[in-house]
Write a protein that binds this DNA or RNA. Structure first.
Lengths: 333, 333
DNA sequence: TGTAGTTCTGTAAGCGCTTACAATCTATGG
DNA sequence: CCATAGATTGTAAGCGCTTACAGAACTACA
């Protein structure tokens, strides 16, 4: 069952069938509908390979994410996939895991599959983006690259990011203004957004004449237990803190666990702020106040931007989405 | 840059290059290495479309899931993707959402992309599988269909499932033997695994001479809040229960919230059991005892089975994975 | 050295589609 | 009624790869 069968049955040439298939306007209405009805009748589906061969593209976008089991990224993938599909694109998914080598390999793999663009979802592609940035910059000469929550200023690379700096600055200010003096800051990575977040925290402190002290800023693995352990160690070492801001909800869950186990009242003795407002932040008791980074908007915007790029429009290399602070039970201001 | 360039440079015909590309044994070692080195030198990558056209396949597996933002499915996708890739296959992802129509559309779409097989991940494909089962059965004549956590007995359809019945039976027995008398059962859907689970619960009760009463079995939306509300209503209506078993961790989270808000001690006054042992079950305080359905194993097995199918081996139409009960803080037996 | 059998390589015909270009209509005005 | 522009359709040449088949080169043995 191929284009020839359709053309024969419809009494037209294969070129005409192909034109109908591609919505070419140079086909009379009569012929078009005839061909359509024959296609329906025969249940014809064009062969994507032949089509890809001819067109050099297959309307497929590669999505790379470090770990789809992270609730935040899982959500992102969901929205990206939906939005791509509603624009007529498929998504080829790659979960790379943490290794840089894998990321490279999978990136190459996507290229070799002739995807029309690559979306790097999440901030876990720092090395790809930074240390070795000619890599992506070179690749971007061949096809558009979209960064979700990452930023690299180069032609062909487009970023959609959250206003992490402002969000964190704002939260820190409100914590301080509500009387908190010793705010712990826990983060998972030195990504683009990670750096902005901590900058927001630091500046809020400075702007309120609070010294930024290194003992209050700690990196921590993205897990429910590590942040808890870390806080226990810090508390045991005599560090005083009355609030903790985190770069990810999972760390905040650990903070809640820490508070529970030590009978520390939340938010009175310890305020806790999460980030991403993921499902996790709703599971704990008390529920974690968190920054909603608008994944859905972030992803929708990313895809919209990509479509504009395809359409040849002039497109800003960076789009910023405004986050929302969602007050729940671990803060009160 | 195509196969001709390589053939010219290597001084052989394109057929030979193609043979090298496909690992055809009828190529002398000398020629093979020559071609390989030229390919490296030129940085040649075969065009997947042309290849697909010739072969009629592109080593791509379609994965359908209802909602990748469900932590359980997100995990499944992750493992599936990993395992497929390590077998040299790509995955085309489709998040269908709940609508049956979408599921059909996306399934067709995957077929039209000429994927080599389709994996239906999760138990949310009941309608596709049951109500209209000739649909899948017919499709399975064309290509293998793999069900993760679903079952349909037909040629070309292969299932990997968890021993949900046994797992639930076992948990219920232990609850009963530890003194619980009024066990609530909350579930989300009437899927294959859903039915097995409730059957396990019922039989455990019967086998301990406890009447199975309808007031104790309730369907509930998969959300953190709905199960809580439901339990509040049930409690307020005067129903007595000292344990609650759920078909999904998210419902158990709601149960914990219910207990917290009413100051009911867990597990003494109310034991709570989750299902899937997902991240959520580790977030609450107390942490939720849950049934580990071994997603990783489930997915690995699914892919392995698929590879056996491709290899032409004789393959069981159903593989059962044994679940583990993970005792945490909401039960004590 | 000749020959049959093996191993290796090349030729050429697809795979199903797109599209530049040529050919054929159709409608319009003179 | 004819020329002409514009609309519509057809022809045929790719796109880059696979593979059946034919042919060349090599091997072993008499």
């Amino acid at each position: 069952m191929n284009i020839y069968d359709v053309s024969k049955r419809a009494g037209v040439s294969i070129a005409t069938v192909s034109r109908v298939l591609n919505g070419n306007p140079n086909v009379s209405e009569k012929t078009r509908s005839k061909v359509h009805s024959v296609m329906d009748e025969l249940g014809y589906t064009p062969n994507v390979f032949a089509r890809g061969l001819g067109l050099g593209t297959m309307k497929t976008i590669g999505i790379m994410c470090s770990d789809s089991s992270d609730p935040y990224l899982a959500n992102a993938i969901y929205y990206l996939e939906q939005q791509l599909r509603s624009n007529g694109y498929d998504s080829l998914l790659c979960c790379t895991g943490p290794s840089l080598e894998n990321k490279r390999t999978y990136f190459e793999l996507l290229l070799s599959k002739r995807v029309d663009a690559v979306i790097l979802a999440g901030s876990k592609f720092v090395e790809l983006i930074d240390k070795d940035n000619m890599y992506l910059i070179d690749a971007a000469k061949e096809l558009p690259i979209m960064l979700v929550n990452g930023f690299l200023d180069a032609p062909g690379i487009y970023s959609t990011v959250c206003n992490d700096y402002e969000a964190m600055y704002h939260v820190a200010c409100r914590l301080i203004e509500s009387g908190k003096k010793h705010i712990l800051y826990l983060y998972t990575s030195h990504s683009y957004s990670g750096l902005n977040k901590v900058e927001g925290y630091k500046n809020a402190l400075s702007d309120h004449d609070i010294p930024v002290r290194r003992e209050y800023i700690h990196q921590c693995a993205k897990s429910l237990t590590d942040s808890r352990k870390l806080m226990e160690e810090l508390a045991d070492s005599g560090l005083c803190f009355d609030a903790v801001m985190t770069s990810d909800d999972s760390l905040a869950v650990g903070a809640v666990k820490f508070a529970c186990s030590r009978n520390i009242s939340v938010p009175e003795e310890l305020a806790i702020v999460g980030y991403n407002n993921s499902l996790l932040s709703y599971c704990t008791n008390p529920e974690i106040s968190s920054v909603d980074t608008k994944v859905s908007q972030l992803c929708t915007t990313t895809v919209d931007t990509l479509m504009s790029v395809f359409a040849g429009g002039s497109v800003p290399s960076k789009t910023v989405i405004a986050a929302d602070f969602i007050q729940k039970q671990t803060t009160n201001f």
